[in-house]
Amino acid sequence: MKQHTVIDSPYGPLTLVAEDGALCGLYMTDQRHRPPEETFGARDDTPFDEAAGQLQAYFAGELKDFTLDLRLTGTPFQRSVWEQLRRIPYGETRTYGELAEELGNPTASRAVGLAGGRNPVGIIVPCHRVIGANGSLTGYGGGLDRKQRLLDFERGAALLWTL
């Protein structure tokens, strides 16, 4: 049984979707690959206290790593990419090629990018931390402006934590 809620964030409204109490979606306004709203289930804030609290702490610069129960639906390859994304440290970036190498398939950088684009839980599974081989911003389901803002935010907050 799915449920959803909408919370405010510095990056616009975020729609959180849960299935049987586990977070299975975090969608931004105008996000590419955003499922139709009728698939989000009934509006109910109840299962989202922990997710909303962790997101609030993240946006306040107080949380680096999310510890939420996630239920991510995708192909085995997509799930392996999403797991690899969760290993990118806060405030750092990796290239699509580096992720492909870490997955044992150095020629799969394009497939890694496509899998990242289908990430159903942006921000929490930090696909915004992946950049092009030349350091440029490439592809982000929430838009390149949001990607740049998230990277700038994390770099700034990470610097504060080291002082």
Rank of each mutant, 00 (worst) to 15 (best):
residue 35 P to S: 02
residue 35 P to R: 03
residue 36 P to W: 02
residue 37 E to S: 09
residue 37 E to I: 15
residue 39 T to Q: 07
residue 39 T to M: 06
residue 39 T to R: 06
residue 39 T to N: 07
residue 39 T to G: 07
residue 41 G to M: 11
residue 41 G to Y: 05
residue 41 G to D: 08
residue 42 A to Q: 14
residue 43 R to M: 08
residue 43 R to T: 10
residue 43 R to Y: 06
residue 43 R to W: 04
residue 45 D to A: 01
residue 45 D to T: 07
residue 46 T to A: 04
residue 46 T to V: 12
residue 46 T to W: 03
residue 47 P to M: 00
residue 47 P to V: 04
residue 49 D to E: 13
residue 49 D to Y: 10
residue 49 D to G: 13
residue 49 D to V: 14
residue 50 E to V: 02
residue 50 E to M: 00
residue 50 E to W: 05
residue 52 A to F: 02
residue 52 A to L: 09
residue 52 A to N: 11
residue 53 G to M: 09
residue 53 G to A: 11
residue 53 G to E: 07
residue 53 G to N: 12
residue 53 G to Y: 04
residue 57 A to E: 02
residue 57 A to P: 13
residue 57 A to R: 06
residue 58 Y to G: 10
residue 59 F to V: 08
residue 59 F to T: 04
residue 59 F to G: 08
residue 61 G to F: 09
residue 61 G to S: 11
residue 62 E to S: 08
residue 63 L to I: 07
residue 63 L to Y: 07
residue 63 L to A: 02
residue 64 K to E: 12
residue 64 K to C: 13
residue 64 K to F: 15
residue 64 K to M: 13
residue 64 K to T: 15
residue 65 D to P: 15
residue 65 D to H: 13
residue 65 D to W: 13
residue 66 F to H: 01
residue 66 F to G: 04
residue 67 T to P: 11
residue 67 T to K: 04
residue 68 L to R: 04
residue 68 L to I: 03
residue 68 L to T: 01
residue 68 L to P: 05
residue 68 L to A: 05
residue 71 R to H: 05
residue 72 L to A: 00
residue 72 L to K: 03
residue 73 T to H: 04
residue 73 T to I: 14
residue 73 T to L: 12
residue 74 G to V: 12
residue 75 T to Q: 10
residue 75 T to A: 00
residue 76 P to H: 06
residue 77 F to D: 11
residue 78 Q to V: 13
residue 78 Q to D: 15
residue 79 R to H: 09
residue 81 V to K: 03
residue 82 W to N: 06
residue 82 W to S: 08
residue 82 W to E: 03
residue 82 W to Y: 04
residue 83 E to C: 15
residue 83 E to M: 11
residue 84 Q to K: 10
residue 85 L to V: 09
residue 85 L to P: 08
residue 86 R to E: 13
residue 87 R to G: 10
residue 87 R to E: 11
residue 88 I to L: 08
residue 88 I to V: 13
residue 89 P to F: 01
residue 90 Y to R: 05
residue 91 G to P: 09
residue 91 G to S: 02
residue 92 E to F: 12
residue 92 E to L: 13
residue 92 E to S: 15
residue 93 T to R: 05
residue 93 T to I: 06
residue 93 T to Q: 07
residue 93 T to L: 08
residue 93 T to W: 04
residue 94 R to A: 05
residue 95 T to Q: 02
residue 95 T to R: 03
residue 97 G to V: 13
residue 97 G to T: 12
residue 97 G to S: 11
residue 97 G to Y: 03
residue 99 L to S: 05
residue 99 L to I: 10
residue 99 L to W: 08
residue 102 E to T: 11
residue 103 L to N: 05
residue 103 L to T: 01
residue 104 G to S: 06
residue 104 G to Y: 06
residue 105 N to M: 14
residue 105 N to E: 15
residue 105 N to V: 14
residue 105 N to W: 11
residue 106 P to I: 14
residue 106 P to A: 05
residue 106 P to Q: 07
residue 107 T to G: 08
residue 107 T to C: 08
residue 108 A to I: 07
residue 109 S to K: 14
residue 109 S to G: 15
residue 110 R to A: 10
residue 111 A to D: 06
residue 111 A to E: 02
residue 111 A to Y: 03
residue 111 A to Q: 01
residue 112 V to C: 00
residue 112 V to T: 01
residue 112 V to R: 03
residue 112 V to Q: 02
residue 113 G to H: 01
residue 113 G to F: 01
residue 114 L to G: 06
residue 116 G to V: 15
residue 116 G to D: 13
residue 117 G to I: 14
residue 117 G to Q: 10
residue 117 G to L: 12
residue 117 G to P: 11
residue 118 R to N: 15
residue 118 R to D: 14
